[in-house]
């Protein structure tokens, strides 16, 4: 079995698993490509970003039609995010592959801890006068049809955090939702439904920025990126379809186990190959 076929099959699994747990496929596909298929980490990161684009564009059209993604908020946060993505791509180029593996290991531990803590996101609370913003909107909750108003707060914090999210996305080949969604829900008071859909809307342009740079630098291998994108896309759709039929708690625990397994592998590679 060639690497491309292996990557295709692994990406279907990663996409499905990611959709079932509610995270992007990139968090799983990068360690799978590097640790199980022996793909160099920079090539895996670049391929993963094409998967991020495919997942984002496929889902965003549905979210826009349903009126769930806040384009105004998303566009505003996209400006620092894509700028951060440029700096992240350049940082990826200068950093050693083993350092990237160590950073990815840290990210996996961070996400596993977040899932363990399972902090409930805050809902939009009334704003003090000095924090009032003109980012006021509503969305219709699809489960019960109620119209829910919300107002974005701490806009400046959101802009700074988005720059960081773009940086991490480009540097490690993930969507950036692990930073964007908590920022929007916890810090900015955006309802979780709007935060996840708006974050998905932002992933495509964010990943395009770094994909362009990796493509031109010859790091992005289409032979690998094609099967990864197709596999993640198919897997994510299948995962989303079955997400209501499987135990979320069990899946979350399974993800934490997988994430920690890959984190150990990546830390081991970092420690073995990097002399501090």
């Amino acid at each position: 079995m060639s690497i491309a076929v292996g990557a295709f099959l692994a990406s279907i699994g990663a996409g499905a698993f990611g959709a079932l747990v509610g995270i992007g496929g990139g968090l799983i596909i990068v360690p799978v490509l590097t640790e199980l298929l022996g793909v160099p980490i920079k090539t895996a990161i670049a391929a993963s970003l094409i998967g991020v684009i495919a997942t984002s564009t496929g889902a965003t059209s549905r979210y826009l039609s349903a009126g769930l993604a806040d384009r105004r908020l998303g566009l505003m946060l996209l400006i620092p995010t894509v700028a951060g993505s440029i700096t992240g791509s350049l940082l990826n180029k200068v950093l050693d592959a083993n350092v990237l593996a160590g950073l990815f290991g840290l990210l996996l531990v961070f996400v596993a801890v977040q899932l363990l803590r399972q902090k409930k996101p805050s809902t939009s609370a009334p704003l003090p006068a000095d924090e009032a913003s003109d980012f006021v909107s509503t969305y219709t909750e699809p489960t019960d049809g109620t119209e829910i108003p919300y107002r974005a707060r701490r806009i400046r914090f959101g802009l700074v955090s988005s720059f960081f999210a773009g940086n991490v996305s480009a540097l490690l080949g993930i969507g950036g939702g692990v930073i964007n969604v908590p920022t929007m829900t916890i810090a900015m008071g955006i309802p979780i439904r709007v935060a996840t859909t708006t974050s998905t809307y932002m992933l495509g342009p964010t990943a395009v920025t770094s994909a362009l740079i990796y493509f031109a630098a010859g790091v992005l291998d289409p032979i690998l990126a094609g099967p990864v994108a197709l596999g993640v896309f198919i897997g994510a759709r299948a995962g989303a379809r079955f997400s209501t039929r499987v135990s979320q708690a069990g899946l979350r625990l399974a993800f934490i186990g997988v994430a920690l397994f890959f984190a150990v592998q990546m830390f081991a590679r970092f420690i073995q190959n990097v002399s501090l």
């Binding site: 495919a54 564009t57 342009p205 362009l212 493509f215 094609g226």
Partner: peptide, 14 residues
Amino acid sequence: WATIGVLAAIITPV
């Protein structure tokens, strides 16, 4: 075919 797919994927969000 994969290269043209990558280009199409990159152009779509733009």
